[in-house]
Design a protein around this nucleic acid. Structure first.
Lengths: 172, 172
DNA sequence: GTGGGGCATTAACCTATGTTAAAAATCACA
DNA sequence: TGTGATTTTTAACATAGGTTAATGCCCCAC
């Protein structure tokens, strides 16, 4: 909580309207964001122009392009609001510097990274071993409230299939 | 390096013969392993008995089921030697405890977790946006030496396709 | 209310990958 | 060096999901 409090107190508040982007794929972005309210999606645009969704971000989450922030390279994905969202922005290096001075902050950092790894591991597992139908069933079971807020377009892009395929799956 | 040195000095050395497992899916395993030599695979067995490979682990890597260790739950995957491997074993909580006492260790911990996240992100990206053919090409380009050491069976299971499909891809 | 834009569904056809099985190649080592 | 075991290839067929396009729906701006 110490870390979240720090961000909430020292960060710059942002308001992102529905459909607007926080940062875009290809840009440098070494900030980290705490989501206070709203709903966002992190997504890739592939070489042939198709969109696939990496994750949905709900209130209470800390999000940012670790890659971009940590390695000083352009972000591989974009972050866009699906509904009006309130964020608080803080430079990544500021948190890293903070963690160098306080054991409790660095412990919190470790916990956040651990749970991030677990989330990614779960997703990797599902992509690797489950069919689109099973992934859809899991999503509906695990996050029914989230599913209600999403369009089928976005659900499909998250599952890694087309909206047409998702419609077929739903109809059977 | 401090962390690796600690493990090397204080851990229990293990020798795993080709084909033998370090730990198995479903078991509790709250150790972390430093690989000194050899090659291993981390893999899932799905409900219908199929194997999919999560990752290959080469010398110099630290590996373990973070999930199992951190949350005290059974591991979701198995770790098996593809060739005779030398590991050093250390309890995960011991490293965590160490990181609570030393800022430099916790910084190193953070760096390891960050790079783990980046690896997983890359894999997630490939599974989500690339075809099997493209994933195979990437693997051959990025890790040619590794590819040489693997059977097509294992490469296929890593790519998320069958050996038959990989054979077809190679032949065109 | 009307018209336009995006979303969801449906259908027809196409392609990649799975499945099964058999043949061919390679390896392991007695 | 020969023989069995394992890996790889090939083939024939089945299925999931992609592509394109048409249709209907809903929402919202005017």
């Amino acid at each position: 909580m110490e870390l979240q409090n720090y961000i909430a107190k020292n960060g710059i508040p942002l308001e992102i309207e529905k459909g607007k982007q926080v940062f875009a794929q290809g840009e440098l972005c070494d900030y980290v964001y705490l989501v206070k309210s709203g709903l966002l999606k992190a997504f890739y645009i592939t070489a042939d122009g198709k969109e696939t969704i990496k994750s949905f971000i709900q209130a209470g989450t800390i999000i940012g392009s670790l890659n971009a922030a940590h390695c000083k390279v352009p972000s591989t994905f974009s972050l866009e609001a699906l509904s009006r969202s309130e964020l608080v922005q803080v430079p990544f290096y500021e948190l890293l510097a903070l963690s160098k001075k306080s054991i409790s902050i660095s412990q919190e950092f470790i916990q956040i990274l651990l749970s991030l790894s677990l989330k990614k591991e779960r997703r990797e597992y599902e992509l690797l071993t489950l069919s689109a139908t099973e992934r859809f069933e899991n999503l509906c079971k695990d996050q029914p409230e989230l599913v209600k807020k999403l369009t089928q377009n976005d659900i499909a892009k998250y599952l890694g299939i087309t909206p047409v395929a998702l419609s077929r799956i739903k109809h059977q």
